[in-house]
Amino acid sequence: MRKALFYVPLAAFLALSLFLLSGLFSDPRDHGSALIEKPLPAFSLPDLQQPARLVTAADLKGEVTLLNVWGLWCPTCNAELGFLTELRQQGVRIVGLYYVQPVDASFGDTFDINQLRLDVQDKLTEQGDPYLMNIVDEKRSLIFDLGVTGAPETFLIDRNGVIRHHHVGDINPQNWPKIQQLYQQLQQGGSDAP
């Protein structure tokens, strides 16, 4: 009994070491999402191609969709465009949610959706266009409601408009298989839900 007690500090030390060691391999950006299994928040935001047309959550329903938060200002998003375009060619439905950075009016900056459309067009002809359409979130309202912390981030949304997965960071050939598995599951089995 006394001998066993002698090993208690050693065991406690090893347990603590293992716990801290596991921290070395965890991703500090990965702190879960509050919106998993929740429906896409209601929104009404302009389509980049035809700003007069307002896109709503209902427009995304019907098919499994990747909602990709991105911006021209974000280098990782631009690097991701090529791979996402490949995915689109494989038949993946990708909708862009354009992250507009705050403009500082005191520096004379203004937001011009027409200029943005031209800039985005240039970029997408150059890098590849993965998007079915782009939703422009000038005030970052939908982005806020989705709990987006930066760009790129991607949401996997099922046929009924329910968020099933939230991916922080870029999508690349290394991490796609995991998301693809979920995507295919939703495509095969998601139609029986109301």
Binding site: G32, A34, G147
Partner: peptide, 8 residues
């Protein structure tokens, strides 16, 4: 805030 960004 928690509804959007979680307990974090």
């Amino acid at each position: 805030m928690k509804q959007r960004y979680g307990d974090f």
